[in-house]
């Protein structure tokens, strides 16, 4: 059974930007569906349409059995929305935050009280119910944020970039909570992310979206298997007075010219080289670089990851765009906090 079905869902913003360009997909009951794409790909716009926060320009979707255009009120009763920004009231306690939402979903006070207890245990915040949220850590706030989307036991919960801006340790813990939710509550989860590992770890199925269009869809394994070939990762030996960047550039241009190389990509201070056949490519690369006077320090070969899947389908790397967005969001959040 499908919990979400979209029909050519499209959003064109004033000025003609086609943020979401006629997408079709289905999300099955009980699954974790990952919507993976770089910033500006149309993920948040899609989630906002499915949440009835903005209306599609054309096309529509059925969420939890109701059409988002014709029956937004019924949709809202059956969904939970956890936005990218932690939408909790920092000047209220956890219980107050959750109770207000319980009232919004027309639960009676007794039920709210019971569910608050349950949910705080589920997201491991028991004991913090009556503490003011501004004393919570970032990870605790995110957990409360997720909890607020669960108080009415929705059929589907939307998580927009659930771990953006969190440190790696907290991120892994949030993943655990999300996986627990899916299991404990049987809730369908629609999540957007621009972190490959997140989609890989959490999602049963993934749709890769770029420039408003779904490029490919499948289980993480299916997607990885869709790329033929291997990825060879090498690091270069740099003499002290050598310019490392310059050397990387030279290496990249030398390799790109070879017919057996599909593409190259700098990953930190290493270089990933995509090739048809890793076993024969390694000696060729070594020979070629030796001829150019470039010394290789380490070399390894692996099957492609989701990063490589993304690179193949979009011609770009998702990582390049990661840093700036997070930083801006953090600056803004800090600024807001300072003013309180």
């Amino acid at each position: 059974m499908s919990v979400i079905v979209t029909h050519h869902l499209t959003k064109v913003f004033p000025g003609g930007v086609r943020a979401v360009d006629g997408i079709d997909f289905e999300v099955n009951a009980g699954e974790i569906f990952g919507f993976l794409g770089p910033n500006g790909a149309g993920k948040t716009t899609t989630i906002k349409m499915l949440n009835t926060l903005i209306e599609p320009t054309s096309g529509t979707a059925v969420v939890a059995g109701f059409d988002i255009c014709k029956n937004p009120a019924e949709v809202r009763k059956r969904i939970g929305y956890v936005a990218q920004d932690v939408g909790v009231d920092e000047r209220a306690t956890g219980r107050e935050n959750l109770t207000l939402y319980g009232h919004f979903y027309r639960l009676d006070s007794k039920t709210i009280k019971k569910r608050v207890k349950e949910i705080f245990e589920l997201v491991d915040l028991a004991g913090y119910e009556d503490k003011i949220v501004s004393t919570y850590s970032g990870g605790m706030r995110k957990r409360l944020d997720i909890a607020m989307g669960l108080i009415h036991r929705p059929e589907v919960i939307f998580l927009d970039e659930p771990t953006a801006g969190l440190d790696p340790q907290t991120r892994v813990r949030i993943w655990d909570y999300i996986r627990n939710l899916a299991k404990a509550m049987g809730v369908t989860i629609f999540l957007t992310t621009h972190y490959m590992e997140e989609a890989d770890h959490l999602a049963d199925r993934i749709a890769i979206i770029d420039l408003g269009k779904i490029i490919t869809m499948g289980t993480p394994d299916e997607l990885k298997q869709s790329i033929s070939g291997d990825v060879v990762t090498l690091s270069l030996l740099t003499a002290e007075d050598d310019d490392h960047n310059e050397l990387m550039r030279r290496t990249e241009s030398a390799l790109s010219a070879e017919p057996f190389v599909i593409g190259t990509q700098a990953v930190g201070d290493k270089l990933a080289v995509y090739v048809d056949n890793g076993e024969s490519a390694v000696p060729s690369i070594m020979r070629l670089l030796a001829g150019q006077g470039i010394e290789v320090e380490t070399i390894s070969m692996a099957r492609p990851s989701l990063d490589d899947v993304f690179l193949k389908y979009t011609g770009r790397t998702i990582r390049a765009e990661e840093g700036t967005a997070t930083t801006f969001a953090q600056i803004r959040r800090k600024r807001i906090r300072r003013q309180q």
Partner: peptide, 11 residues
Amino acid sequence: MGILSKMLATP
């Protein structure tokens, strides 16, 4: 703080 849009997605 994203509180408004979160509220708007509720009934």
